[in-house]
């Protein structure tokens, strides 16, 4: 079980969180014309890398904040966690 540092609450066990997928995906702005390909990329297409991955988690059974977690998908090492509005180095 992972040990995730919630930037609001501190170290917590994985079972307090739920996973939210790739954090680098950006939703196209409302009312913006987008091509089928751009929309597909936003809704479906993910790179699923082996190694460093910036991902979203929600501290569901805690502060309920969505956070960003930089994690190695192969080793589960967590390098850093960020608030949603934080600059990512």
């Amino acid at each position: 079980m992972l040990h995730i540092k919630c930037p609001h609450c501190g170290m917590r066990s994985q079972n307090e969180f739920s996973y939210g997928g790739d954090a680098t995906v950006k939703r196209p702005a409302l009312n913006k014309e987008v091509t089928d390909q751009e929309w597909d990329n936003f809704v479906y297409n993910r790179v699923s890398p082996r190694g460093k991955h910036l991902e979203l988690w929600q501290h569901l059974s805690g502060c309920r904040q969505w956070i960003k977690v930089e994690r190695d998908t192969a080793t589960h090492e967590i390098f850093n966690t960020y608030k949603t509005n934080e600059e990512i180095a």
Partner: peptide
């Protein structure tokens, strides 16, 4: 609830 929080916190803060 999670869905609403996602949009408020991440997409349209």
């Amino acid at each position: 609830l999670s869905h609403l929080e996602y949009y408020l916190q991440l997409v349209w803060p």
